[in-house]
C-alpha cells in the first residue's frame, strides 16, 4: 500500500490569538504554529497500517513555520519519505489547498496509483471554507469518507474497511475501494512518542524532498469582513480565595444543593 499523509500546520490556540490591525486576519507575529491535532492521528494511523500490512508512508506538507521539525519527527516515527511543497501559503483557503495537494499527484514521479491511500485530518480549526479531504476527493475523483477512527485492509489489498464516528458512542462500518481519500478523526492508538534526540540525529542525515507547485488561482467566494475575540458570556459565579477556603466553599455549596448530606 502506498500511503500518502498530508499534514497541515495550524495556529496553536493554547497561545493567545491576536487579531491583526486590518481586523481581517490573525497577527502572524504572535502566532505559534503546531500540527493540526487530527493530522497527528492521521500520521499515527498511517504508521499503524504500514506495520500491519507493509507498504510505504510518504508524508507531505505545505511550507509553514515549524513544518521542518514536524516532517523530521514523522520520519523519526517511521515514515519513509518526507516532502515539502515550498511557498508562502499564508491565508490559503481550503479549496485552494486541495488543488495544491491534488497537483502533488501529477508532479514528476508521483501518482495516485491503484493502491494509494490518502490520509488527512478530518478537519482543522481554520477550515472556514470547508474541510480539505472532500475537496481533494472531488479533484482526484477518488471516493471519500470522513470522521474515521480505524482502518483495515482486505486480503486482496484492494478495499479498506473503516470505522466512522456518529454520535453518542454509535459508530458505523463502511467499505471503500483504493485509491481513496480518508479524513481521520482519531487513530486506534494515541500518537507514538519519539525522543527529541532521535529527531535531532535524523535531521543531520535525512533530507526533505521538495515538490514545486504553483499557487492555484481560485477564490472561495467567501470574504472575511471582521475577526474578533468573543466576549466571555461570564455566567459562572466565581468562587475565590485560598485553596483551603475554596474547598470549604465547595463543600458548603454541595450541602446547600443537597448533593452532600450531613
Amino acid at each position: 500500500m502506498d500511503i500518502v499523509v498530508f499534514l497541515k500546520m495550524v495556529p496553536d490556540v493554547v497561545e493567545e490569538l491576536v487579531v491583526a490591525d486590518t481586523g481581517k486576519s490573525l497577527d502572524t507575529q504572535f502566532l505559534r504554529m503546531k500540527l493540526n491535532d487530527p493530522d497527528d492521528y492521521s500520521l499515527e494511523e498511517a504508521l499503524i497500517l504500514k506495520e500491519k500490512y507493509g507498504g510505504t508512508v510518504t508524508v507531505v506538507a505545505m511550507e509553514a513555520a515549524e513544518v521542518d521539525d514536524v516532517l523530521f519527527t514523522a520520519l523519526a516515527k517511521g515514515a519513509d519519505r518526507i516532502v515539502k511543497i515550498p511557498g508562502d501559503w499564508t491565508g490559503i483557503q481550503a479549496p485552494a489547498i486541495a488543488k495544491v495537494l491534488a497537483s502533488y499527484f501529477s508532479s514528476a514521479g508521483r501518482q495516485l496509483g491503484p493502491d494509494t491511500l490518502v490520509l488527512l485530518g478530518s478537519q482543522a480549526i481554520d477550515d472556514l471554507e470547508g474541510e480539505v479531504a472532500p475537496y481533494l476527493s472531488e479533484i482526484l475523483g477518488a471516493p471519500y469518507i470522513g470522521v474515521i477512527t480505524g482502518i483495515s485492509l482486505d486480503a486482496e489489498k484492494k478495499k479498506v474497511s473503516v470505522i466512522k464516528e456518529f454520535a453518542g458512542g454509535l459508530r458505523g462500518e463502511f467499505e471503500l475501494p483504493l485509491p481513496c481519500v480518508i479524513g481521520i478523526q482519531a487513530a486506534e492508538k494515541p500518537p507514538r512518542y519519539v525522543p527529541v534526540a532521535k529527531v535531532r540525529s535524523i535531521m543531520k542525515t535525512a533530507k526533505i524532498e521538495t515538490v514545486d507547485i504553483a499557487p492555484p488561482e481560485i477564490t472561495s467566494g467567501v470574504t472575511i469582513e471582521k475577526m474578533f475575540i468573543p466576549e466571555a458570556a461570564g455566567k459562572a459565579k466565581m468562587i475565590e480565595g485560598e485553596p483551603e477556603q475554596i474547598s470549604a466553599q465547595i463543600i458548603d455549596l454541595l450541602k446547600e444543593t443537597g448533593i452532600l448530606r450531613r
Binding site: L17, D126, L128, G221, T223, E225, M227, I229, P230
Partner: peptide
C-alpha cells in the same frame, strides 16, 4: 463563524449572496 476552536469569531460575507 467560529474559528480556532471558538477562540475567534469571524463575520463572513457572501458577495454573491448565495452559498
Amino acid at each position: 463563524s467560529q474559528l480556532f476552536g471558538g477562540k475567534i469569531l469571524s463575520d463572513v460575507g457572501l458577495p454573491g449572496n448565495r452559498g
